[in-house]
Write a protein that binds this DNA or RNA. Sequence first.
DNA 1: GCCGTTTTCGGCCCGACTGTTTTCAGTCG
Length: 563
Amino acid sequence: MENQTILDILELTGKLLELHGENDFKVRAYYSAVFNLDKSTEDLTTIPVAQLSGLQGVGKSMAAKIEEIRTTGTLKEMNDLLQETPEGVLEMFRIKGIGPKKVRQIWLELNITDTRELLLACENGEVARLKGFGEKTQEAIKTNLQFLQANSSKLRMEKGEELAQQLLDVLETNLPDSAIQIVGDIRRKNEIVESIQLLVGHSKPWEVQQVINGLPFMQQAEKISSPFVWRGKMEGKSIPFEVQISSPENFVNQQFIYSASPKHLAQKSLLKIAQKEPLASEEIIYQTAGIPYIIPEMREGTFEFDWIQQHSNDELVTWDSLKGILHNHSTYSDGKHTLEEMATYCRDLGFEYLGIADHSKTAIYARGLYEDRVDQQHAEIDRLNLKLSTPEKPFKILKGIESDILGDGSLDYSEEVLKSFDYIVASVHQSLKMTEEKAMSRLIKAIENPYTTILGHPTGRLLLSRAGYPVNHQWMIDACAANGVVIEINASPYRLDLDWRWIQYALEKGVKLSINPDAHEKDGYFDMHYGVAVARKGGLTKDMTFNALSLTEMEAYLISRKK
DNA sequence: GCCGTTTTCGGCCCGACTGTTTTCAGTCG
């Protein structure tokens, strides 16, 4: 069991209590326990009960609940509440913009227990008539429901990969002599996975079908399956699974066909080539077509055929070409690990610099830094830099901040304070609902601010959960080009923002991109693997990757930029 | 349910924003 599982159970219990009309302060105790524990580095699964109740926000009762969760794997209080909650009401928790209180009203006052009924009620205006609701809330619920329904069977890449890997592991154990590979969306490193596809090379397809059907957690959809294709689902998941079965001789051909998008296959006769005689490698397919090899993640049928004529695959960014990690949080704001822990780990992973960028003062929810805390942090950075760097292995913490872009486009410190940083990530965190015109003038003003080094998560999107604020990408990128501002590829699998589809345009305009993990704890650094994956998909080269600069180059750049 | 004392019980939280209201509840980051 992980800390997160415990926190998820406590948070859901809190939400359910609120939904069922429990005392607000009691509810708040659950949220505050989760809030505090989320930032703690204690291992909740092993810490003694006596110490648990000493943690901030955890009393005797909460400690007992945590103990119950870690011994039984669940919480009776939560299960009892779930028993009394219709499934459809639970689903309403996922609608952005309404919380447990409004869900309670919908459930009890309109007697709605199903999201389809809720959509109908929005359409005939019933929802707007509830006290505290109105036309806008009703419209927001409606759009949100439609968004959720359209995405209900999709997964973000990290979740999709996890499930695909689960099935792959089991199949490899059960079919030890077969070639098995993940293909489709996941092999192309799509940020959103619509179906999980695997390919098995085996001479007796029915044996493969038998193995899959023998797995208790895989449920076949017989009507859409065939002797060579197993289709169905994994227990408790709504994403479709598809296992293609090919003859061992044709494995590479099929692997190619099921990995590339139809638009890619349609060009240069690639599909025809792959459908002919058995091939030993994918490279041969491209050779036969008379073009250089194209990496799997790029095979979308968009820019890759032009790209490969002007570049080589060696130019693409890799994990190893990254020299430092920018945009990270510490316990100064809402991070889990101290500045020293973050820095030491970063150095030990072999990076040359850590760019710290805690939240700025406007982000009060995240304990953003007031001016005195900025000074304090800078003093600590100076001390740590002396301690962590050696002549053989130079390492430096760069003084940064993730400065909130305010409603009017300004950054939230005085010029005096802005000057004191080595670099600034400017990000929007508030007022996400703006017209495009307003959102763009705010963004442009922030880009034009001479202290802005990097534009952070430029659209604010949360994949499968929230569309970003309206952004005219072309206009934004042009402004970054004109002002020498770097754009972040936020590597969190929840964001992956800037979208890879805009990388080529940014490069054309000479805008560098920075693959930033937005790490709130040490392990968060590894999110850069997702960032690298989508960056390569979009054709980002090493020489245009901001954090591929060495420490010496980075320092020189930041100094010249400040001038 | 937690906290911090007045050690037994009363008061609880961070503030902006939105969409409702016409002074504020709910939601969010």
